[in-house]
């Protein structure tokens, strides 16, 4: 499970850097009005990454990557009777298999999200450095403009909920797989779809509760 997290670092890095770069470019392209201060570009990048890109989008990506992996791992254990073998040994297979995964996810997914925030902002920084439309000074001023610690707290609260969904939904689908290899694929697809939907709904509800 830890290795799953570490294995995701590369993917998360690439996605975050490119999204950070693109968000910065798009904001720059849309802020051509000279009346608007240039530091808004850095501000927009920071806000979108802290509030939404890093926690929600990364969780959706991890739901695809980690979720399908968990569902097929546990599903395979189910149909090849490995779960029965655990039960025979008197082990409560559900908690034995699922609990450590949830705990691990609750620890490392927040770290991945913070890592994504940093890299997204770094992506924007690189664009600011090489593009003619803005200056690094403006970008940095924007990053520091009106910074609220609560944004990070809000992001972390969301992430903890998402981490739980990312592991528990696929575990459930994997654990209750019936039939053969075809069904493993099916539960893995189903778990990605359901966990993504649940993440989006929780995202909406939490935002309503925490930010308004």
């Amino acid at each position: 499970m830890m290795s799953l997290g570490i294995g995701s670092l590369g993917l998360v890095a690439i996605i975050s850097m490119f999204m950070g770069a693109v968000v910065t470019l798009q904001t720059a392209a849309n802020l051509s009005n000279p009346l608007l201060p240039a530091y808004l570009i850095g501000y927009a990048t920071r806000e979108s990454f802290l509030l939404e890109m890093a926690p929600t989008v990364m969780s959706l990506i991890l739901a695809g990557k980690i979720g399908s992996n968990i569902a097929s791992e546990i599903g395979t254990m189910r149909i090849t009777e490995q779960i029965d073998a655990l039960e025979i040994m008197g082990i409560n297979s559900a908690s034995y298999l699922i609990f450590p995964k949830i705990v691990a996810a609750l620890c490392f997914i927040p770290i991945i999200v913070i890592y994504s925030m940093c890299l997204g902002i770094l992506g924007g920084f690189i664009v600011a450095m090489y593009s003619s439309g803005m200056t690094i000074e403006d970008y940095i001023t924007g990053l520091r403009y009106d910074f609220k610690v609560f944004s990070i707290i809000y992001a972390m609260i969301k992430t903890v909920f998402f981490a739980f969904v990312i592991t528990s939904v696929p575990s459930y689908h994997g654990y209750y797989t019936r039939g053969g290899a075809l069904e493993i694929g099916r539960s893995s697809t189903k778990s990605v779809v359901y966990s993504s939907i649940v993440i989006l709904i929780i995202n909406y509800v939490l935002t309503q509760l925490l930010l308004l």
Binding site: M77, T80, E81, Q82, D84, A85, I88, M89, G90
Partner: peptide
């Protein structure tokens, strides 16, 4: 269950 050993149809090795 500690006194039961079971060999499964497909071996069920971890």
């Amino acid at each position: 269950r500690k006194e039961i050993g079971m060999l499964f149809q497909g071996s069920a090795l971890f």
